[in-house]
Design a protein around this nucleic acid. Structure first.
Lengths: 256, 256
DNA sequence: AACTATTGTGCGTTATACGCACATTAAGTC
DNA sequence: GACTTAATGTGCGTATAACGCACAATAGTT
């Protein structure tokens, strides 16, 4: 996670600002006026206008004379990444079988910076879900998959994670003390799994295991999550850990 | 689909070129050297290098000293669009029920330019599939969903579609004669559904209906697709059309 | 009609991004 | 090790891309 700032003359401010215009759009601002885009992207109206017109020309944005909105074409910007993760297609049958077996949702994620990013997901029938899951980012420090992924970092990488860390509590249960978090990561390393109990969200329990490659290196983490009202932490460990490990092993062999 | 070229001084070439670097990555080129990126993005090595370094700095690309690859963060560029399409979450239960009922895959797409773009998908258990479906683009002229969407265009819009059209056959069954295609679109308008039989892919049959809003305007199309060896075109129309229409009506009411 | 907010746009100026050319490094072959 | 080929790193002079301002035009509200 080394971040060395590049030579200023190698940095393209126009590209960076243009991408800021794209990311100014979000779930709550899926359509905006020119002035709103300029405010959210933190640039002058004229600059925002040029970038919006450029994105319209390229087909990534559309406008009706007053409001601008993103088009499906912007998916192509992330699509190259998504399709490059095609190896997770092979995990799908194992995840489906696991979901049927434990009757809970199942996800796979990778570590990126201080977050985990979902790369595959099979929801249980009870929870409505679309491909929204893919690309979702959650903080690594208070998720079961995050702790499993942190457990595989080298000591220097883990040190940097904790140095950069900004551990804000998301629920009254969220652990934020770096020493306690380090201990949890060590436990995950020792036990080969991690469980998180209502630290990310009240009512949410999840248990995760690593997915390794043939060399034993951790590629991703896979979890099963459920509602605290339906299963105790102890029950989750007793009933879900074995099928999780079994599915992870199947995925390991499938990826070989 | 009017494409008026904007004033050259309003067009940001740096943003456009930077985006070309991102889209240079694809399924077959998920990691590339600097020179490969420059070739695929059609720019000098020095320019490609500056954009790659900029994208690294922003976290969208990572490099190991030789190869560059996209990071999950690029999903955030398209994610704003994806989350803005959150209304399709409500379609999910109807699609799942339909998939269970007819034992085939089900998708929803919207029209963009001359393509359809998948916005929701529920695959049947037999076909391995992840969220890859979302964002997939297919030509509108030879897909059942495409013809249903074309059927709702205004005459001037439809004229432009055919004027811009480049209808290449994908299989020996693909219709490419604009007059025949117009007739198929008219049939879709008249019948309220369209069926395509092995025009996109040998062995693939699909039937689609429109999803309308309360005002009757077509928002999207939904299809069910199956293999030609398992079901005849006539059987598909007789067995799948009613449940498709029923599911589309349910989605219409759910979106209200 | 008056006022406020927003958008469109020409243009002089600034600084961003360009590509070249040379040095360095890496990889492959003999 | 020597040689060749390919790829990469980078400084820098130059051109022009992009900047923001300021004013006109439009839209919405009262």
């Amino acid at each position: 996670m080394s971040t060395t700032t590049i030579n200023a003359r190698d940095f393209s401010t126009s590209l960076a600002r243009g991408l800021r215009v794209i990311t100014a759009f979000d779930r709550d601002n899926d359509e905006m006026t020119l002035s709103e885009v300029a405010r959210r992207a933190d640039m002058t109206r004229a600059a925002a206008r040029r970038y919006l017109l450029t994105l319209c020309e390229l087909g990534y944005v559309t406008g009706d004379g007053k409001y601008f909105r993103l088009t499906p074409r912007v998916l192509e910007l992330g699509f190259a990444f998504l399709t490059s993760m095609h190896i997770w297609e092979r995990a799908q049958p194992f995840m489906e079988r696991l979901t049927e077996q434990v009757n809970e949702s199942c996800s796979i994620s990778v570590l990126e910076g201080s977050d985990i990013v979902y790369v595959a997901r099979v929801p249980t029938k009870r929870i409505m879900s679309v491909a929204l899951g893919i690309g979702t980012r959650l903080p690594a420090f208070c998720t079961s998959m995050g702790r499993v992924l942190l457990a595989d970092l080298r000591p220097s990488e883990l040190d940097q994670f904790f140095n950069d860390g900004d551990f804000k509590p998301l629920t009254p249960h969220t652990l934020t003390d770096p020493a306690l978090l380090r201990e949890k990561v060590s436990e995950a390393r020792r036990d080969g799994y991690a469980m998180v109990d209502q630290e990310l969200e009240i009512g949410l329990r999840s248990i995760a295991v690593p997915i390794r490659n043939q060399a034993g290196r951790v590629l991703a983490a896979m979890n099963v999550s459920g509602h605290a009202s339906r299963i105790t932490a102890e029950e989750m460990q007793q009933r879900y850990l074995s099928p999780l490990l079994y599915a992870a092993e199947g995925i390991r062999m499938a990826l070989a």
